[in-house]
């Protein structure tokens, strides 16, 4: 009798459609690096997107907390991503991670690199998008300056290639013990029309941003940032993806995982926003297009993005 029951169970497992078998809610655990600001904005937006999608969402705000091995883990930020990569979690979707940070993670945890159940949505924008923003925003300015310290070499290669492709001249100034920031900044402002801020925390941080923006403004050189905060502070413009936009893309990946048990390849956020500072553009005497026009212009030509 016991053998008969077992046979019946195997029969049912073989012939019942897969969808019915997966009808049980997918367990998704969102692990936040911090329980604040953009992280919570992301988890709230994700919860909203996955409402009534037969997904059980659990948000954990301590990366050190024990997490279930099964189900999908969404690691939000590098701290969570590093903690989860080292755990026994089966499937991981990393968000709020820069591309270079994710590459480093895979390097540190090579087993994850081979897995089809580890992926990411990058927080940074593709270089092409940045370059196209500059072109659309300031068509007359062809000389772009950057300050470097610990900016990832691969990202720099990408940026150089994209600048060259668009025939923009890139002036690189690497700071160091014998080339301090204030000297490098002066050089870059002297040699360039635009200062492109890069996510290089040794250069652009709360200690330095005030003087960088003031010096650039007094030189008449606009700064292009990479987050809305830069635009608020005084940069001319920035292209970025909001937590809600990343959450929307993450929600799609989660649903796909629920259906296929596969995650899409690691990628940049498909949705993005452009923000401009009209007061700064006016004061610098720059006639620029509206953020909506710029977004449309960049979006319209993004089809050929690699």
């Amino acid at each position: 009798m016991r053998a008969l029951c077992a046979l019946a169970a195997v029969f049912l497992w073989l012939f019942i459609p897969a969808g019915h078998l997966h009808a049980a809610p997918l367990a998704v655990t969102v692990v936040l690096s911090e329980s604040s600001g953009a992280y919570l904005e992301f988890s709230d937006a994700l919860r909203e997107k996955l409402l009534n999608k037969n997904i059980y969402l659990n948000v954990v705000d301590d990366p050190g907390e024990a997490i279930p091995e099964q189900g999908l883990i969404v690691a939000v930020g590098m701290k969570a991503a590093t903690a989860i990569a080292g755990s026994s979690a089966h499937a991981i979707l990393n968000v709020f991670v820069p591309r270079a940070g994710y590459e480093k993670l895979l390097h540190d945890f090579p087993l994850r690199a081979a897995s089809k159940t580890c992926s990411a949505i990058f927080l940074d924008q593709p270089a092409e998008r940045q370059v196209r923003l500059i072109e659309a925003l300031l068509p007359g300015k062809r000389s772009i300056g950057i300050l470097l310290d610990s900016y990832p070499p691969d990202d720099l290669v990408q940026l150089r290639q994209r600048m060259a492709k668009h025939k923009l001249t890139l002036h690189e100034h690497k700071i160091g013990p014998d080339f301090p920031l204030h000297v490098a900044l002066q050089h870059v402002l002297d040699s360039s029309d635009v200062l492109l801020a890069l996510p290089d925390a040794a250069i652009y941080n709360s200690s330095t941003i005030r003087n960088i923006l003031l010096a650039s403004y007094h030189s008449g050189d606009p700064v292009i940032g990479f987050s809305p905060s830069y635009v608020k502070a005084g940069a001319l413009a920035a292209v970025f993806s909001t937590p809600a936009q990343i959450a929307a893309q993450a929600a799609m990946a989660i649903q796909r995982y629920g259906e296929t048990r596969m995650l899409p390849a690691a990628q940049h956020s498909q949705q993005f926003e452009v923000s401009t500072n009209e007061q700064v553009s006016r004061s610098l005497g720059l006639a620029i297009k509206s953020a909506e026009e710029l977004h449309q212009e960049i979006s319209a030509i993004m089809g050929d993005e690699p």
Partner: peptide, 22 residues
Amino acid sequence: TACYAGDDVSEQSYLQDFPVVL
């Protein structure tokens, strides 16, 4: 004060809030 040092690549640069300078 609000960033990872050295060659750590973090999301903090993207999420950092700045005061209005200009």
